[in-house]
Design a protein around this nucleic acid. Structure first.
Lengths: 355, 355
DNA sequence: ATACTGGTTGCAAGCGCTTTCAGGGCACAT
DNA sequence: ATGTGCCCTGAAAGCGCTTGCAACCAGTAT
């Protein structure tokens, strides 16, 4: 196959100069009257080149609007200028913001991102890593993820990994954890200050580290305020609206009373609010609710959601930055901004009368 | 540069067989005692090969866990097995669902997707196309997009394009438009049936085709019901929560009364609901509101949002499918499912007493 | 003047894979 | 046996770029 001159659909072109297939280094070199090596060196800034030739080459490049073929370059250099990114779902509002941050940073630095969704299960995630490795990405950024530490460490031998929102020390891995515990403390304290004593917590899946750290923070704040921890007030969720709704319904039908609800993340809080609404309860009059993440849409909920803010977008950007440092053999020096409480309208003073 | 044997970080490996750099076709060929050509043919199914050699090669491939280097393959074949995808923002809930659909379909067919965000402006979008072209993607899927028809047609000469949610006939381009008008008719009719007569419409940016088609549908339904069209009831928005909120506030402070609100998309409706809430108005008791898109989170709003459903995820999948057909030189035969109204709890019977 | 130095260039060998082209093996017909 | 095809294979020529190595050019020291 001699490679068709142009695209499959639509071709023809009777233009004068244009031979439609993309220009090559060789064409540029010929046009500028220098060798390919020189052109390559100019493009990459790999060596000094006389001003005269440089301008000739620049002109030729401009004339053809030349852009080096990344496959050829990748083959020759043994790298792809592409970073693989694994999240659980590209359409999740949470991950979406992170991806945006990554995309933004990477693009500015000449890298492209290859996004893949792990679909909340370990096998798919494993497939993603394999696929990414197969495509020879230069590095992998992984958002928390289901893969266990051992597997991750093994992969890190083949390619540098940055782990966003998770804790793990291993060669070749740089982790950028979120301060889940502190965030949970902030949220819970806020509720306590408002006078709440019976504060329920909707956790995520409890074998997910984020969930347990947030639970820890919740318990810590409770303890600090001298409030006894009541395990009946803690119910599992799934980090999604569905789980938040079910958990709240369960809580509501249990004998345990509560005046406030701390949810492991915003989506869970959304579900909780709906359950409360369906049960005829008003937020925040009857029950206060606070989330975690501060998704964009949280400020447009009715009522706007009080939540803990940790910019996922910044997490994404920082992860990308860390990856590039890793790629340059520097140990990343990056830290995330502090988590902070964003008080909106879904929380209010405790109202002792209600369930 | 002789290419370092392994990743930058973490290497060493004292294993017995493993020479850590990825296996090559040549290694496999040697191991199986055949030529590289044969291995290639087996992998690609390009020609018949004796069963005996085939099994030997398969064994060798399995032994090394060989995966052909996509850069090398891309170079040799002149294609990248990668599709560029342009949306306005990867973190938008709307586009997110579309991307999910694309990712899902493409991945199953051995293609990878390169996502880029146009950030709602033409220049960025242009940059995206250039970058994608530079990376030699085999095709581009574009979600509506700001780029004008002429520019798009020009690009379509270099690479096949599928245009999701937009109408445009040109060689090399396949468009997959959403039935905006019909959706708007459905939404407006629903409100009319509920007894509403003063129905406001929050449009998007009105030089965006989606917005005008939806406006058309709204007017058409009104006319059909014999309700006079009142331009004062139509205000511009921006397809975002922000715009929906502002538009609603503007509407509320104008002398025009209304009992229902049809919003150009769900995000606009979210903003509208917040404005209503802030103004002490209840949905749906005082004002009914309906959106368009049926984003996942719409069913978890308080109250759950009545909206027009057109699965964006399906749009994404279909777009990807169309692209692959285009790549195979077949004219795509794809149509989207009908739009449909999803009645939830944000709409109710007209209540004549209120503003 | 001539040898030497330091910096700029060009040559050519790959990078890992696909594919054309021609050679070799085999079955079948003569 | 010998010829005629057909089918399976392997050798080798790229695909477009990077880079080690050697050649080359001034300019300087001798």
């Amino acid at each position: 196959m001699k490679k068709p001159a142009a695209g499959n659909v639509a071709s023809k072109q009777t233009a004068v100069t244009a031979v439609d297939s993309p220009p090559t280094l060789e064409m540029v070199a010929k046009e500028a009257g220098v060798s390919m090596a020189t052109v390559s060196r100019i493009i990459n800034g790999t060596a000094k080149v006389s001003a005269q030739r440089k301008s000739a080459v620049d002109a030729a490049i401009a004339k053809f609007n030349f852009r080096p073929n990344p496959a050829a370059r990748g083959l020759a250099m043994g790298k792809s200028t592409t970073i693989g990114v694994i999240t659980q779902a590209i359409d999740s509002p949470f991950y979406g913001e992170g991806l945006r941050g990554i995309e933004h940073y990477l693009q500015q630095h000449g890298y492209a991102a290859l996004f893949m969704s792990g679909n909340w299960n370990e096998q798919d995630e494993e497939r993603c890593v394999a696929e990414l490795l197969g495509r020879r990405v230069d590095g992998i950024i992984m958002f928390s993820g289901r893969l266990n530490d051992a597997a991750l460490s093994a992969y890190a031998k083949k390619v540098p990994i940055v782990l966003s929102g998770r804790r793990l020390k291993a060669p070749g891995i740089f982790a950028l954890p979120i301060d889940d515990q502190q965030g949970a403390v902030l949220a819970t304290q806020h509720l306590i200050v408002l006078g709440h004593r019976r504060i329920a917590f909707i956790a995520g899946n409890l074998n997910h580290p984020d969930a347990v750290e947030r639970l820890d923070g919740y318990r810590q704040a409770l303890a600090q305020a001298g409030i006894a921890y009541d395990p009946k007030l803690v119910v599992p969720g799934d980090f999604h609206e569905e789980g938040g709704m079910e958990a709240t319904l369960r809580l509501l039908s249990s004998p345990s009373k509560f005046t406030a609800l701390f949810c492991v993340n915003d989506q869970t809080a959304y579900g909780a609010c709906l359950a409360l609404y369906r049960s005829g309860l008003s937020v925040p009059r009857d029950v206060s609710v606070v989330g975690f993440d501060d998704l964009h849409s949280s400020s447009y909920r009715v009522p706007p959601l009080t939540t803990v803010r940790q910019s996922i977008r910044v997490l994404g950007e920082s992860s990308a930055e860390a990856m590039l440092q890793l790629l340059n053999n520097r140990r990343p020096q990056i830290s995330l901004p502090q988590v902070e409480l964003v008080v909106r309208e879904s929380t209010g003073p405790a109202h002792p009368a209600r369930k």
